[in-house]
Amino acid sequence: MHGALRHKGRRKDRLALTAAFKCIFLLCLASLRAGRRREGLKQREAAALAFSIQITDLTKQYRKGPPALNKVNLNIQSGMFGLLGPNGAGKTTLMRILATLLQPLSGEVYVGGVNLADNPGAVRAILGYLPQDFNTYRRLTVRQVLDYVALLKGLDAAAARRQKVELVLAQVHLKEKRHTQVAHLSGGMRQRLGIGQALLGDPQLLIVDEPTAGLDPEERIRFRNLLVEISKGKVVLLSTHIVGDVESCCSRLAVLNQGNVCFTGSPAELAAKARGQVWEIAAAEEQHTTLPASARVIATRRIGDTVHRRILSPMRPLPAALPVEPTLEEGYLQVVKAGATP
């Protein structure tokens, strides 16, 4: 009896010891995992911060015509990057190359350290792309389209996918249209759907070509804000004709003209390119003014009976003209006109 009790006591001790070891082991494991997680997070954050696109001597030529891109060099860091340029400047060609849809004639592109030519698949895995004229399967509903794109972007788990699709639907304000067929969406709604599909899968590189075309002013502002919000730690490449979009969103931008990069820098630097060349003239409506050939009226606005004209000219166009602080649009026009190099 006594022996049995003693044996029971030893067994209890052994169990307690084992439990203690187990606890220590689990604690160590948990702390190890937490350390690794922290490390992973740090690495990812660092990678995200360091995520960039290096474009070196990129040239693309179609069968007919001059080069669409002529030895383009760009270094695009994380954040929003604007691409401005007139029609046919090569913006869409550049974006299609970055979206792995076109092969360049020569030059190199590194996206997040990955050579685009060697591993286009790796780039597609981190890419969100919205082309200029977005359209999709007309017979599918908004939700079905997003669900399919999410599937193809690797969101396998049904619950997570549903959650992500719902989140995107909310971001692009299409929640109420989730069961509407694409064929029945208006142009603006379809554009929002395009933005939504590009946002799926949390892309590291978001390429958006004329994304605000067709959106009403309220949606445009909302969309700009959304882009700014998601651009943290990512590259958002925004191509647009609307200079106001770039001005309000992008910290850096490039101006392309005839396949050449005319300018890279901040919006303020671009605006500064026209400093000393923008003039304003206020004159009565009926007063006829003849401008020199080198001068160009950029904007006209009426205040009462007076018409205020902003003029881009390398020299004072009229004695009454007053120098004014240039806007981004005027800087852009000046750069395109002068064919300035960075």
Binding site: A99, L101, G121, L130, D133, R138, V149, K153, G194
Partner: peptide, 18 residues
């Protein structure tokens, strides 16, 4: 040619599937 017909080919071919 489904995607070309629907105007979805650019987005489709920029997605991860090879």
């Amino acid at each position: 040619s489904r995607e070309e017909r629907e105007g979805f080919s650019d987005v489709f071919y920029a997605l991860p599937p090879t």
